[in-house]
């Protein structure tokens, strides 16, 4: 009997402490949020441009399973359109690069907690995200797209029945868009690109909704799939992002993007990393130089 009583007491106490611990987490984060807004820079989560330079290493969050934008080749080296740009940033900052493998759903979190200095992971600029992180000038155009197997090509969202499930990746704009605009569509969510692509190949869902750049690449690389809906939702852009308030780093990246326009850097990037997949057809529609039109309109 006494043992049981002790168990019960300790369990209740455990619950109490855990809850108190959580309360503290929230209090802490609130305090920290207040700190970063009131007292910018002194005890922020991010590292300023000078701190990165004196440290000698910049932490850049990229995808490691999103071919051809960010992936790892058979020799263990990061490759892709985003990585090509990251390499240039490292070179011009004069520091080494530490690549941090990120998933779609934790990109904001990584910046908010300062685990990376820059996210260069096909990060679409949205109003909601811009409240949490600071986007630099964009370097690519993007919209949403839907790819499906040739056996049943989905050309309109209305073709998706109540029994069908659409594959999306957790934390992407496709997930947000379908959740808000088509709540009747059943979503099958994956946490990584590698898993989502295996799932569409294995026939676990009727279609895969993602950035149209990525689904077009997938259909081009994998015979038997067609992008039935090449453009969905608004026309957006992809940009580097830094932690909220990290103006020194943000300004540096913006200057860098403007300066790179002179050498048509992102065209070179496209030709080095994307041309094998897309051919030359998509070059002008995808690539943005010097921040494109958005250079004048604030992102």
């Amino acid at each position: 009997m006494r043992r049981t009583k002790w168990f019960a007491i300790s369990f209740l106490a455990a619950l109490g402490v855990t809850l108190a611990g959580c309360g503290q987490v929230s209090a802490g984060s609130a305090a920290q949020a207040a700190e970063t807004t009131d007292d910018q820079g002194s005890k922020a989560v991010y590292r300023t441009l000078d701190e990165i330079k004196s440290d000698g290493t910049v932490n850049i969050g990229v995808f490691s399973d999103k071919n051809p934008f960010g992936y790892v080749d058979e020799n263990g080296a990061y490759q892709g359109y985003d990585v090509y740009f990251a390499e240039r940033i490292g070179q011009d900052l004069g520091v080494k690069i530490n690549y941090v493998s990120t998933e779609a759903a934790n990109r904001v979190e990584y910046l908010e907690t300062g685990k990376v200095d820059i996210v260069l992971a096909n990060f679409t600029v949205t109003k909601e995200r811009a409240e949490k992180v600071d986007f630099a000038l964009p370097y690519m155009n993007v919209a949403l797209g839907v790819v499906s197997p040739d056996s049943r090509v989905i050309t309109d969202l209305s073709e998706i029945t109540a029994d069908d499930e659409v594959i999306v990746i957790s934390g992407t704009t496709a997930e947000t868009y379908l959740t808000e605009n088509n709540p009747e569509i059943k979503l099958q969510k994956y946490d990584t690109y590698a898993n989502a692509k295996n799932a569409i190949e294995n026939g676990n869902g009727v279609a895969w909704a993602n950035d149209n750049t990525e689904v077009i690449a997938f259909a081009l690389q994998n015979p038997g799939y067609t992008v039935g809906i090449p453009s969905l939702g608004s026309q957006d852009t992809i940009a580097p992002a830094v932690s909220k308030g990290n103006t020194t780093l943000l300004d540096w990246i913006n200057d860098e993007i403007r300066a790179l326009a002179d050498e048509q850097f992102f065209h070179k990037d496209y030709e080095a990393t994307l041309v094998d997949t897309y051919g030359l057809d998509y070059e002008e529609s995808l690539v943005l130089e010097g921040g494109g039109a958005a250079a004048t309109a604030a992102p």
Binding site: A104, A105, N106, V108, E109, E112, E128, K132, S170, G171, E175, T176, T179, K189, D191
Partner: peptide, 8 residues
């Protein structure tokens, strides 16, 4: 994880 990724 999903809610963190969607609404932060």
């Amino acid at each position: 994880k999903d809610l963190i990724g969607l609404y932060y």
